[in-house]
Design a protein around this nucleic acid. Structure first.
Lengths: 327, 327
DNA sequence: CTGAAAGCGCTTACAG
DNA sequence: CTGAAAGCGCTTACAG
């Protein structure tokens, strides 16, 4: 392997001079520059980032922690993150927790031992242990998808967007709206979206019925099961709001298999927009959280922190409602 | 930041001993071990990977180069890669070329300067410049999706699977089958799948018509355009085979918009299985290349190389045909 | 404009 | 069983 010493020797300068030239700080004579460039060309020398990092305490690498890679929402966010990182000459170290909370904490540690310059966490909870770990991290950690205490984070407009959607359903005449959610250890998706559903029904003086609510674990299968649970009950709803698109797909499958027509027998709305949702029959009415933009936005906040801005910022991302024919 | 020196001092041993204990090589007395563990606990010490890498020339990081992250095929492959890497305690550095060939070469260099232990490339071409770069890399590079010269690689069964699908279409009575492909600088998708289409028609003594073929660039839009090009021609086909699912979605959109019914007016088959394809109407008949398994398999080959196996291996991945109602 | 020297935080023979 | 020493490949004041 070629090192800076080899280059120095071949170019007849000291390695300090080579380093100065490579990093474009300090003066290097024209002649020296040319000799160095020539030698670098010939040897196709590449500076060792390990050595560089050890000295400078910077790696140019950002760690990204996400629940699951092969999900459309996540891959879009990653796409946005990646764009922004590439613009800023950062590389991305990707880790996946498979929704295991312990791994979130473990990865924050591991990423630090890898000397990443910062961490982007796609949040699934705001447990105290996690908050503590983020606090004591000695690199900036930013969070997308949860309002993480004392941490720079971007939330999705879980409450408002859900209120708007439920209201929209009510205005379209649906009165018996059921709800498929996730457990409450996820404050954003589990608590806020459910609260929005309940609050909106109350506002319209409608009863909140336990049997109209069921909960899944983000998977397609769990959406199927939740829909089944709801429909097995004697008093059936005429609409359903599903908090994530994956579970909505499962719910749709259950309804199709059991010959309920959407929207004739039961209206459906959800959150998250699929690349294919335009082509599904029926086209789902959904809330688009614009994940790619969110990925860009959270990365921008991290870049700010890396540039010395050290106040905690809290943002809420935008959204738009996409109308289909499932209502 | 806590370093090995701090630990050594606090535990009253030399840093050699701490190192020996951490890496579990060489003897360390029970007492010393306990003192060290205690101090590590208290300080929540994490060894610097940069320093470690500089010494050992190993980083425990694998570089992954892919054309585009937010594509279902890619994210499934990444999922498989990630599973296998996690089992082997490796981390993943992810890069995206956006289908820019120069970036493939640039990333191979960049990843090396980051001292990755190996590289997995999702191949889009087998250009000489790329082959050379792979050859002269001083870490193992393995390739998925192309039969890369002189390189350990796993190909998809592009030719055979396509022959089988076209044959299946012919056996189902379709005679005027059109084809949507990609340019020939992609040997696997561009050349082999097209050749399979042509060879199979020839075998059935059917004419090969230029106007029955159109080409896109993997995007949904290009599939739309290609389908349009074909349908604008006076002699219309009664079926189409599209080489990728993304382009198939575009082609479907064109057909729907122009009130062609699938499969009544025109049958369709493609490659690649979408999470949602079961729920699209019609359900697409498709070839499933089982991308997650492919990701696992290519990572396994890389692990073998990392363990000293240095022969070049060439594998072809499996596939299965999924029948829908689009034919 | 340039080079010698120190040091980043580790590991690894080597000597004891 | 343990420690001193050398060295991995860089960068960065500092002196000239």
């Amino acid at each position: 392997m070629t090192t800076i010493n080899d280059i120095a020797k071949l170019a007849n300068v000291s390695r300090s001079t080579v380093s100065r030239h490579l990093n474009k700080n300090g003066y290097v004579s024209q002649e020296a520059q040319e000799r160095i460039d020539k030698v670098i060309q010939e040897t196709s020398y590449l500076p060792s980032q390990s050595a560089k990092s050890l000295r400078t305490k910077k790696t140019g690498v950002i760690g990204v922690i996400l629940p699951k890679i092969s999900t459309e929402t996540a891959s879009r966010v990653v796409d946005g993150i990646n764009q922004m990182l590439q613009e800023n000459d950062y590389q991305m170290l990707l880790t996946q927790t498979s929704l295991d909370k312990d791994k979130e904490i473990a990865f924050i540690k591991l990423l630090q031992s890898r000397n990443v310059d910062g961490v982007i966490l796609l949040g699934t909870n705001t447990d105290e242990a996690l908050v503590n770990e983020i606090q004591k991290a000695d690199v900036p950690v930013v969070v997308l998808g949860q309002n993480m205490p004392s941490t720079t984070s971007i939330s999705y407009p879980d409450y408002n967007a859900t209120v708007e959607m439920i209201t929209y359903m009510l205005e379209n005449g649906y009165r018996d709206i059921s709800f498929i959610g996730v457990p409450e250890d996820d404050p954003a998706v589990g608590i806020l979206r459910k609260k929005a559903y309940i609050d909106t029904l109350k506002k319209y003086n409608l009863p909140i019925l336990e049997e109209r609510m069921a909960f899944g674990d983000f998977s397609i299968e769990s959406g199927y099961d939740a829909m089944q649970t709801i429909m097995m009950h004697s008093s059936q709803p005429n609409a359903v709001f599903v908090v994530t698109d994956n579970m909505a797909v499962g719910a749709m499958q259950y309804l199709k298999e059991n010959h309920y027509s959407i929207p004739k027998d039961i209206g459906m709305a959800t959150t998250g927009v699929s690349r294919l949702s335009k082509y599904i029959e029926p086209v789902l009415t959904t809330i688009d959280f614009q994940n790619e933009d969110a990925g860009i936005a959270i990365t921008r906040l991290l870049m700010e922190k890396l540039n010395g801005y050290n106040k905690t910022k809290k943002l809420t991302h935008t959204y738009r409602r996409l109308s289909g024919n499932s209502l």
